[in-house]
Design a protein around this nucleic acid. Structure first.
Lengths: 132, 132
DNA sequence: GCCTATAGTCTCTACCAGAGACCAGGTAAA
DNA sequence: TTTACCTGGTCTCTGGTAGAGACTATAGGC
């Protein structure tokens, strides 16, 4: 079965769940990790654990506010582990849990697609800009 | 190579691009389709073309404003094709372009992961709720 | 005459992301 | 001694943006 047909079948199942989107696992998780920063931070942590300021350096355009907030969400969802070393000043290390590592597969698929088809997307944007 | 190591290697490449996130294909596309609605609409269109109001019915909690806006973005990025039938009242049909269909693979990987691991995420949330 | 359906647009408001100041509390340089 | 700096955040203010809901034109059915 083609991927887009399988996807359509899944979508029909979600529709059966009725009017409450939170009960749909996909809606629920998409609302959490489908934002600008979550996937990026998961990718940043894929290689090795990093400390708070190292993450801030790795993703320069995230504000510390959103960095804290996103990491907290990823922690409560069990994707990221937060470890405080009670030294002075305290050092906080973030790492992927096994669940977080299991997300690397789908995320890599997304990244591969983005790199492979970015040219087509740019071409489409250029066409639309000309047409308008 | 494990997926999370491959992901880490990609992430290091992006860091080489310097301070402009828009030049990174992954950042660029994540900022576009990494919102609450884009992936959902792509999934809704995966099975067959749909008209505007059919999409609104398939995704009941999207406002018409966001439906219009998200479809326009997907159209300028070349993922969705918009076809106006000049009848009265006009009928507008949205369908996936070949580029849009090619996105079904990564999207399906994401959906599969969400359905497979949603239980673990809920368990993690319950643990965090108890601990707080 | 009134209601429906079509595919949107417009305005108003509420919320949320981002910017930047601020915090404790120890270390190290001047 | 004063000053600056490091850590990992928190606090407040503001601007942009998402969502709610009213409004549009035109035709067909009752």
């Amino acid at each position: 079965m083609d991927a887009h047909l399988a996807l359509a079948a899944r979508f029909e199942q979600w529709a059966m769940l009725g009017d409450d989107p939170a009960r749909c696992p996909v809606r629920n998780l998409l609302d959490r990790i489908g934002d600008r920063w979550s996937m990026l931070l998961l990718a940043a942590l894929a290689g090795s654990p990093r400390r708070f300021s190292a993450l801030a350096r790795a993703v320069p355009d995230i504000s510390r506010r959103m960095l804290t907030q996103t990491l907290r969400t990823l922690e409560t969802d069990g994707l990221v582990h937060r470890e405080v070393e009670p030294s002075v000043p305290p050092r906080v290390t973030y790492s992927l849990t096994p669940l977080g590592k299991s997300f690397a597969g789908p995320l890599l698929a997304l990244v591969d697609w983005a790199e492979a088809h970015f040219g087509e997307v740019e071409a489409a944007r250029a066409r639309m800009a000309l047409a308008s």
